[in-house]
Structures are given as structure tokens and as C-alpha cells.
């Protein structure tokens, strides 16, 4: 999954305009994605590209679009 595809995925699942989604966008502050929506987003993401939930344990990883993308990319060659 490229960064562009990743952004499109977040726009679709998170119901957020694609133009608002950039690497530094904070899920909570900029995209208004709260914790339960975040869990849903991760589960949907996991259905699409299975990953180990241990990767997303750290609150830092869940801060921004870029941090989540990099964390997933770092452990999964086909992400």
C-alpha cells in the first residue's frame, strides 16, 4: 500500500475529506478521529493488510497519519 492509497483508505473509513489527510495530520486533533473510531480504523486496516497489533501499541505511533504509516511499513514488507 502506497502512502497515497493509505490516505485514501483513511478518508474512506474515517469519513474525512482526502484533502485534509497529510503525513503530519494528527488523527485526534486534525481529523477528529476518536479512540473508538481509531480502533475501528485499525481493525479495517488489519482486514485489508494483516499486521501484528503489537506494532500499534505505542501511543506515538497512533498520533499522525505518517507515524502510523511508517510503523506499519517498517514491519511489513508488503504494506
Amino acid at each position: 500500500m502506497t502512502l497515497e492509497e493509505f490516505k485514501e483508505f483513511i478518508a474512506k473509513v474515517g469519513k474525512v475529506p482526502l484533502e485534509m489527510i497529510h503525513e503530519d495530520a494528527s488523527f485526534r486533533d486534525d481529523l477528529n478521529i476518536d479512540s473508538l473510531h481509531m480502533v475501528n480504523l485499525l481493525i479495517e486496516l488489519n482486514n485489508r493488510i494483516p499486521f501484528d497489533f503489537a506494532v500499534v501499541q505505542d501511543a506515538e505511533v497512533l498520533q499522525t497519519v505518517g507515524s502510523l504509516y511508517r510503523a506499519l511499513k517498517g514491519v511489513k514488507a508488503n504494506v
Binding site: 473508538l36 480502533v39 503489537a54 501499541q57
Partner: peptide
Amino acid sequence: PSLFRAIYLFAKNAD
């Protein structure tokens, strides 16, 4: 239930 499920799902694999 939904919050607990989310907590459990996150934690069970990691810690």
C-alpha cells in the same frame, strides 16, 4: 462491551 473488546484486542497480542 465495545470499549472492553477494543482494549482486549489491543493488549492480548502485545502485552
